[in-house]
Design a protein around this nucleic acid. Structure first.
Lengths: 322, 322
DNA sequence: TTGTACGCGTTATCAG
DNA sequence: CTGATAACGCGTACAA
């Protein structure tokens, strides 16, 4: 069923039918004629042909590191919302934290009919920088600050510093830290450094020998926390780079010291499930939905008004439960 | 940059360039000529035009109820994996559990250049049945059994029955149940009925007045469980339709009866985070990744070999931690 | 092995 | 307000 056949059946020109679906330069009379035929045939215009003709697909490619992470889910939800209200669709690619797959998808999207690309960022490699410099497709990165690209990110450092200060007010005497790889700058470096600063300012510095890597995993964090607590009974505070890992640390503390122990365990990111299971541990709410939404809006405005400058937006935060 | 310009620059015909990218009817000499120009210009064929010409987009539309649910994340991960290895891309739509948005997306995908549609199913309304009956687009539904459509689903009932029997072996004397709306047949009806059967067979039936709706939410389940335990101290077992809700029930039990209480709380779905935080409560592993993967494979085979029958696949399960 | 010519289904332009 | 016509960029008979 093509526009031509509809035109023939309705006794009008194809152009008329096209206008019927787009701008509305159609007389009432013809409109009814066409509407009737369209309803009878169930005709839908070919998006393919339209895309070709318009040189635009109203499609945004979104590349995420791990779809099963709550923070990512919240971002994509925000992206999707913004995108949908502007009449776009989302093409989602999941890389399972694999840099090669990530670059592959970025390359794929460049020649795919997407109007723009959103990258939910984790690591920054030379190949990433190369891509950013060379791509002609509108591009926004969410969650990491990256030079040369439009990006929208959270003030991980400031948030962590404030969290650290608040924790220090409780005067913990022996503070351990479970972080993640520094390859993820926002989570691995900014959160750690900010937290260390805040704790030190408040007079409760992290002890150098009590720093571990929790690898973004509840299990790994559980394991590390257990080892820490077994070896250092003096620990009375464990700060974690994510709520997910904090969940593991809490479990460890309960195992080693029993329920109702006094160890302070803090997280980051306000993971819904973790917060509701634990009844609320010290954490930072980061507005992932917002960054998703704003990132998508930024991208679409780039798509629709090309030639603008790359812009960087830093989002606020809210320290919670302490 | 079009195929014509490349042809001109390489001193060959456009058809040659097309063949260079598709079937390979090109002499070595010309191949090198073209390769050189392609590399220099960074030319990528327009997927738009190719799609129009081929009448195929290598795109699968996936409609999910809630992207931030772990089970959904696991399914989409499986779908994505299967799709990618077959050379397709995934277009993801999120409905936030809204039936209207769900139907909108289904309709959108029908006229979008997707080769097939996967629906991660929850409710089944007359409009759903209408869509299924009328759509000409290859279509697979995952997670619910639905007549007239190809579907792949889990044996929720059998799994629940076995879980119920296992729980009954611990001889609980007063069993409560927190479920969800029966509009979601698999989760709201099959799990409930199966569990009730298994418990009854084992001699530990659920007490009729101890049945509540937890609305897929940790908070709601927490609230309901707290009310139950406050009003009925004799409760020694709370079964929940999802792990997420079980997390709320555990929290409630700890609040009301203290840590280390003997109330058995069971879940369903083997939620990673819940299992690792709780140290493992009785649950059922359902292979969501597998259903995603197989559902996608089923769909693609429908796309590539049209005219087949609708098929229904039931997947197994594994009861865990009891 | 190579090139020519046509058509995929739309929409934009332009003349009426 | 309406209709004819020319692209959009590519793939593929068909002829050479």
């Amino acid at each position: 069923m093509t526009i031509k056949e509809i035109a023939r059946l309705a006794g009008v020109s194809p152009a008329m039918v096209s206008r019927y679906f787009n701008n509305g330069y159609v007389s009432e009379e013809k409109r009814e004629l066409i509407a009737k035929v369209v309803k009878e045939t169930g005709y839908k215009p070919s998006v393919q042909a339209r895309n070709l003709r318009r040189g635009k697909a109203n499609l945004i490619g979104v590349v995420v590191p791990r779809i099963s992470s709550e923070s990512v889910a919240r971002m994509t939800s925000g992206i999707e919302e913004a995108i949908r209200t502007r009449g776009y669709q989302m093409l989602l690619a999941n890389t399972e934290n694999n840099a090669d797959i990530e670059l592959d998808y970025l390359a794929l999207f460049e020649r795919y009919p997407v109007d723009g690309i959103v990258l939910v960022g984790t690591m920054e490699t030379p190949r990433h920088r190369k891509f950013i410099k060379e791509t002609k497709t509108p591009f926004v990165i969410i969650g990491q600050r990256m030079e040369g690209a439009s990006c929208i990110y959270h003030d991980d450092r400031g948030a962590a510093r404030e969290l650290g200060r608040k924790i220090a007010e409780h005067r913990p005497e022996c503070v351990a830290y479970i972080g993640v790889t520094p390859e993820d700058r926002a989570v691995g470096v900014e959160r750690r450094d900010g937290l260390f600063e805040g704790l030190a300012e408040g007079g409760s510095p992290v002890r150098d020998d009590l720093i571990r890597d929790g690898a973004f995993s509840t299990e790994k964090a559980h394991e590390e926390a257990k080892a820490l607590l077994d070896a250092h009974p003096e620990i009375d505070c464990i700060c974690c780079a994510t709520d997910i890992m904090a969940a593991g640390a809490i479990e460890a503390a309960n195992e080693v010291l029993g329920y109702g122990n006094d160890v302070i365990v803090s997280g980051f990111g306000d993971n819904h499930l973790v917060q509701s299971i634990t009844g609320g541990i010290p954490t930072v709410h980061l507005g992932y939905r917002t960054s998703g939404r704003q990132g998508a809006e930024m991208l679409i405005s780039q798509v629709e008004n090309p030639g603008g400058m790359a812009s960087m937006v830093e989002l606020g935060y809210r320290v919670a439960n302490i």
